[in-house]
Nucleic acid binder design. Structure first.
Lengths: 352, 352
DNA sequence: CCACGTTTCGGGTACGTACCCGTAAATATA
DNA sequence: TATATTTACGGGTACGTACCCGAAACGTGG
């Protein structure tokens, strides 16, 4: 069976315009050296034929490589969360490498703002065509993307967002709604009057992610005017000892707490505490598909995990740059990830 | 920036083997006309260099088109479930069309076995290189794939499986586990002693899917030795009147039923009944992201929907044939879909 | 009108692979 | 031994696009 030859390429365009292929090529790529008249003519024919370039041939013939920078937190001992986006990015890399795309990784330490700035400097010293970044440090990120914008380098945010930064796209969760889902799950089996605890474990005092989530969480109670009390506690030191200490105090002050909602992936620390202090009567919900979290999910200490497909975030983030830079295709400005609910029973089939 | 030329192609292989490109090509494609000795030599070099063919160039140069058949139920008035796989398949089609792949659709009526057999005959009359099918009618499907196997045409099952049929792959849910998850959700907020109802709405009396799901559902109660009673009812007529009639009877006989589990996407029929008869105290769980189901989810009549990414099933199903036939890459024998939990709060972000 | 620069364009080769066609050598047949 | 047939291989062109290089056409100032 033969390919259908209903396909019109540059050759056909050239024939119809009475010019050479080279001239058509110049028009397509907006290169100089074509009179206004013939340019008009050729563009007309292109539109008429709805010409779609053959990416295969295009990438094959092109000698250029496209160089992308990826800026994300290093996988730390504390949490293996960032393995997932990395994996997704590597998957995308493998897929598009043969199209002449090259990835450079720039890893920083979430506990050290300086490393973030260093990596930014390193990126700007090289010749990049696009950047994928997790804007963990807000002010520094803003500065950085402003520079990129001036240099006309497209950049994509993922995992968390900063609004109104002229980014090509944001790939990540709708944080508010995610907190909302958390509240629904938490209250699903509670009695009418209940007391719940929101735990925020994070070095950064002001954290856009956590705040957004908590807002959604509280909104649920408002919308369903449940007569309940939402306590909250900030734990700034992420080690398990500090967590245990702070929780002990809170649970002493409020002995009738029935459920705990942790606004990020550090729910395992809370689970560990509940386990040790034999408080398995308390419902527990938190975030992310970490090995430790799954362990406590299996044990029943954690009831639900919410997850936003971190691997796919990485994959899609890179792919959107590829789409823009290689295929020249338009890219969605915002791509919200699903708000996945993980239980003991379905985690085995979860696609992170 | 230039492409790195660390890439070894047929040219390099030919040079090292002291043969022409044509001969290397013959070896790669297992075409005759090469002595055993040179074949060995060339294969050695290929392995040594870990040669990866350039798909771009390969597809560009190839004149052949690859023709795939897709056999699935027609989208009916009763349920729009099959829109999703179709959409996924179309997405895959758009993606791989430019590589010279062509799709032919063969639609049958789920209520009419004859249409299934007709479509099978139609497929076998054409020249196909691969088949993607939902094996809704088990015996007929078995016959069909036996023929395909003889003709060395690879075939992929999706949505539901038939074990041990030499299929290239199965893409779909782990049904047992899916029922297990359903049970967990259903009992999550129930008291200790409870009575639940399993509803099986289906024209086919023997239905592999539903049975597998119910098995998983019951297994959960066994594993957690909950003191509960599981009633079950088969409803063979799928129209809403029959459903209402049968349910009325069952709920009259067992007036203390607290929760209902529907083993397929027809949960909206049950929801509609509960709504009309003002029995919104009963928890309800069912399957699939249908418009009707989402409506009742929003109203609160349905508590949870379980879903197995039908669109992605279609997409992946087609892509696995593409992987095998065009890229010559190995394909996973079984690819279980995630068991997604959908609520009123997260459905807006669900990716079907 | 000529010399020279600029604008505008076409020829042609390359990318890596597929595959047609032709041919020399090896083998079989008479 | 002469001829037919098969086997084993190489040359070369095509796929659709990118881009180098050179050349014709045009314009400008002297």
């Amino acid at each position: 069976m033969e390919k259908d030859n209903t396909y019109f390429g540059v050759k056909e365009i050239a024939r119809r315009a009475n010019v050479s292929i080279a001239t058509v090529d110049r028009v397509i790529h907006n290169r100089p050296g074509v009179s206004e008249k013939t340019k008009q003519k050729i563009n007309g024919i292109i539109k008429e034929l709805d010409y779609q370039p053959n990416i295969l041939a295009s990438r094959l013939a092109s000698r250029k490589i496209i160089s992308l920078a990826v800026l994300l937190p290093r996988v730390s001992e504390e949490t293996d969360f960032w393995e997932a986006p990395l994996k997704g990015i590597r998957r995308a890399e493998a897929e598009i490498k043969k199209y002449g795309v090259q990835i450079q990784f720039y890893l920083f330490d979430l506990n050290d703002k300086n490393t973030f700035e260093e990596q930014i400097k390193a990126i700007l010293e090289t010749e990049v065509h696009g950047v994928l970044l997790s804007p963990s440090f807000i002010e520094e990120s803003k500065q950085f993307v402003k520079t990129c914008h001036k240099l006309k380098i497209p950049y994509v945010f993922f995992d968390s967002n900063i609004p109104d930064q002229d980014n090509l796209s944001y790939i990540g969760p709708h944080l508010f709604q995610s907190g909302y889902v958390g509240a629904k799950l938490l209250t699903y089996r509670l009695k009418e009057n209940h007391k719940v605890l929101v735990v925020n474990i994070s070095k950064e005092i002001f954290n856009y992610n956590n705040l957004q989530i908590e807002e959604g969480f509280r909104a649920y109670f408002n919308d369903h005017n449940q007569s309940c009390e939402v306590i909250r506690v900030d734990i700034k030191d992420t080690d398990s000892l500090s967590v245990a200490k702070d929780l002990t105090r809170v649970l002493y002050e409020h002995e009738d707490i029935e459920a705990i909602f942790v606004t990020n992936s550090r729910v395992f620390a809370v689970a560990s505490f509940l386990e040790k202090s034999k408080r398995t009567d308390i419902s527990l919900i938190g975030y992310d598909f970490l090995k430790e979290n799954i362990r406590f999910l299996n044990m029943g200490t954690i009831d639900f995990l919410i997850c936003h497909k971190p691997e796919e975030q990485g994959y899609r983030g890179l792919m959107s740059l590829y789409q823009r830079l290689v295929l020249g295709a338009p890219v969605e400005k915002v791509h919200f990830m699903p708000i996945d609910i993980i239980t003991k029973e379905n985690h085995a089939f979860y696609q992170n």
